[in-house]
Amino acid sequence: MRISARADYAVRAALELAVRQGDGTVKAEEIATAQDIPHKFLEGILGDLRRGGIAVSRRGGGGGYRLAREATEITVADVIRAVDGPIVSVRGERPTELSYRGTAEPLLPLWIALRAGVRRVLEGVTIADLATGTLPETVQLLAAEPASWTNP
């Protein structure tokens, strides 16, 4: 599975909004600078986050962006879906829309299991978890495995 630059930037932008939640709205330029994200690219991402119900915006001199709801209610999966669509797809299709015949039949449950595992991790981590640096124990255990840090 690949995490796109768009998804990475979107999670970083949501995280930046979470840590600045008490400051009111945050300008796109401030997020871009703080997270080293190209400003024009970020504008499109923030638009997707707004349309996806993750962020809200206000125009004008005191305008900017803020989270649409509490950071404890927004998962990493929510953010990724807002900018990239389904979490796991095969050839651009959702695994449940696929069918295989013959020797390829075991692929479908494999793709479904992969999607379930990825969902379990990404839906189990909120933007608030990231903002406080307190990842769920299941994620910490996975990350603590030495094999998790190596490329075969």
Rank of each mutant, 00 (worst) to 15 (best):
V11H: 11
I112W: 03
V125Q: 06
R91G: 15
D84Y: 09
A144K: 07
A13R: 01
T75Y: 12
L142H: 07
P86G: 02
A7M: 04
L46W: 06
I45V: 11
V79H: 06
L130M: 05
L15N: 05
R94M: 11
T96F: 12
Y100H: 09
G124A: 09
V121Y: 06
L110K: 08
E30R: 10
E97I: 00
P146H: 06
Q21S: 15
E137M: 05
V121S: 03
G64N: 06
I80N: 02
D23W: 07
I74K: 01
A13I: 04
I45T: 06
L114F: 10
R50K: 14
A147Q: 12
V88F: 10
V88M: 05
N151S: 13
V125I: 14
A28G: 11
G102L: 08
T75Q: 10
A18L: 06
P95C: 07
R94F: 02
R101P: 00
L108A: 04
Y100F: 15
V90N: 01
R91F: 12
P106I: 01
R69H: 10
E97N: 14
R66M: 14
L114C: 07
A34S: 14
P152R: 12
P146E: 13
G102V: 07
Y9F: 14
S4W: 08
V76C: 06
E43A: 09
P146D: 12
L42A: 02
L110D: 03
V11I: 14
R81M: 08
R94N: 10
R51M: 09
F41Q: 11
L42R: 03
R101C: 02
A68V: 01
I127L: 04
L49D: 04
A131G: 15
A32G: 04
P86S: 14
V56A: 09
I80G: 00
R115C: 01
L46I: 00
G133D: 12
L42V: 00
P146Q: 08
F41L: 06
A5C: 00
E30C: 00
A10I: 03
A116S: 15
D8K: 13
K27L: 09
L110C: 04
P86Y: 10
F41G: 03
A104G: 00
G92Q: 09
A131T: 04
S148H: 13
D8G: 04
R66I: 01
R115F: 00
I74W: 12
G64E: 11
A32Q: 08
K40H: 11
L114H: 05
L108T: 03
G62S: 09
I37D: 04
T96C: 05
G102W: 07
T150W: 11
D129A: 02
R58N: 03
V88W: 11
A116T: 09
D129I: 01
T72V: 06
E73Q: 15
A5S: 12
A147R: 14
G47R: 13
L46E: 03
G64H: 08
I3T: 11
V125G: 01
A147M: 11
R12Q: 14
A55V: 02
L46H: 04
R6V: 03
K40M: 07
L110W: 09
G133W: 13
R50E: 15
P95G: 07
V125F: 12
I37M: 05
D23A: 12
D23M: 10
T96L: 09
